[in-house]
Amino acid sequence: MPITVICGHYGCGKTNLALNLALEAAESGPVTLVDLDIVNPYFRSSDYGDILRGSGVGLIAPVFAGTTLDTPTLPPEIHSIFAPGAGKVFIDAGGDDAGATALGGLSPRLKEAGYELIYVINRYRALSGTPEECAALLHEIESAARLKATGIVNNSHLGTQTKMEHVLDALAFARETAEMTGLPLLYSTVPDFALRGEAPPEGFRAVGRLVRFAWE
């Protein structure tokens, strides 16, 4: 699928996942990452332009992101993702239904082009740490985005304090959420530092901590 949309509760780790997916995909062809977060000016993909450009990933960011003219407007070049030969595209949506609203306008073209919409969940994220909360939020996001999710990515972690046991303990929550929403659990993530040199367990993908604090 050429277009992957990444949605979820704000703070569940969407941007870190999007950066990881884009960098990984860039090893085998042209990739564009669209930062569709026009709700919050902190910790969004646009802040990591240097990492992306360094790996040859194209970045489409909100118009005038990070300037005084930073307004909730979508960049016109966003439509280039539907052009032939656009390569692999990841869309990092803003958090919650508010952030997913920007997808609504793109929904006819996304439906026409075909898309994969992954719903990112995190067992340790306050207010979306139960299957019930995740299912309710998914419904709000799908309504705002006018798109249906196609799979779940279990991105359960506790920031820099994540240990292997946290990741494994969250599996039951992820499976229950998948069952409740009727969506397939595509995979779970594990931060590379929590692996301590071991290979990720079956059904897990290692992700780097790319969204960092200024002092790390």
Binding site: Y10, G11, Y124, L127, G129, H157, Q161
Partner: peptide, 14 residues
Amino acid sequence: MKVLMKGNEALGEA
């Protein structure tokens, strides 16, 4: 159990 919170949310819940 520990939960992940944004500073602003944590201030509110606290």
